[in-house]
Amino acid sequence: MSEVKISAEPRTEFGKGGARRTRRAGKVPAVLYGHGEAPKHIALPAREFAAAIRRGGANQLFAIDVSDGTQALALPKAIQRDPIKDTFEHIDLLLVRRGEKVTVEIPVQLVGEAARDTLVMPQIDTLSVSADATRLPDHLDLSIEGLPSGSQITAGDVKLPEGVELIADPEQVLVVITGAPTAEQLEAEGAGVIEETPAEESEEAAEGETAEGETAEATEAEAPAQA
């Protein structure tokens, strides 16, 4: 994944009021941190940042040029969005160096089609890997072409690009392939649900009648003794 160059400005206003004014100006509040350095508060152009994330995903590498002369390479560590407006509220950026390995979650994309009459059931859609911060894959392809019912694909089955190391448990199941239910099975299951209800009600009624009979017998047996 290639790095995206983006300009930034130092941010001197903090708190909710300062953040709102930053966003109204078309920028996103952000903080740069890592490598033991003091956090640096900056503002990024909202449109440029959003466009880069759409193209490169959440692991997009940024070459940040701050107007005070600071230059840095950074990866998004945490992105806060407005759930209603779908805009960026705040960004945490982790400082990285060229050649440095980082651990990130990479999206997994399914490729191909499983065998006929099967259901593909994804279990996990990202994979934890370690790779050079400047050579992170934007996604990992996982082929399900022709897989029959009963197949499982684990993290250890994924073919990783050169220089990418698996961090996740290799036994972690990513995808399960099962047989699709037939029309007859669906109909039988529906009929079974309908037939069970009266039977259960009959059993409950019978149990109720038995309990009432036992109570009546006990009362009759006790009556002479009380007399």
Rank of each mutant, 00 (worst) to 15 (best):
A74Q: 02
D125V: 08
D141R: 13
E89A: 13
A114E: 04
H90V: 10
L119T: 08
G146S: 11
K77M: 13
E113T: 10
F88W: 11
L110M: 01
L95Q: 06
H90M: 12
D141M: 07
V104P: 13
P148C: 10
V120L: 09
R98P: 07
M121Q: 15
F88T: 12
V102M: 03
E100M: 05
A131Y: 00
D82G: 02
L110G: 00
F88I: 13
V96S: 06
F88N: 08
L93Y: 03
S130N: 03
G146Y: 06
P137G: 08
A114K: 03
H90E: 13
A115Q: 00
V96C: 05
L93I: 00
S130R: 09
S143R: 14
Q123I: 04
G146E: 04
D117R: 08
I124R: 15
P107E: 02
E100G: 10
L127W: 05
V108I: 14
V120G: 00
R81T: 15
S130D: 00
T118N: 10
L140W: 04
T118A: 06
V129N: 03
I124D: 10
A74T: 03
R135V: 06
I91P: 07
I79K: 15
I84T: 15
V129C: 02
P83N: 05
I84R: 15
A133P: 04
L119E: 14
E89Q: 14
S128F: 10
D117L: 11
A78I: 11
V108C: 07
L147H: 12
P122N: 08
V96I: 04
L95G: 02
L119A: 09
A131I: 02
D86V: 12
I84F: 14
E89P: 04
D82I: 01
A131M: 02
E145T: 09
L127K: 10
I144N: 02
V102Y: 00
P148G: 13
K101T: 10
P148T: 09
V102T: 02
K85R: 15
R81Y: 14
A115M: 01
G146L: 07
R135T: 09
L140H: 04
L119M: 09
E100R: 06
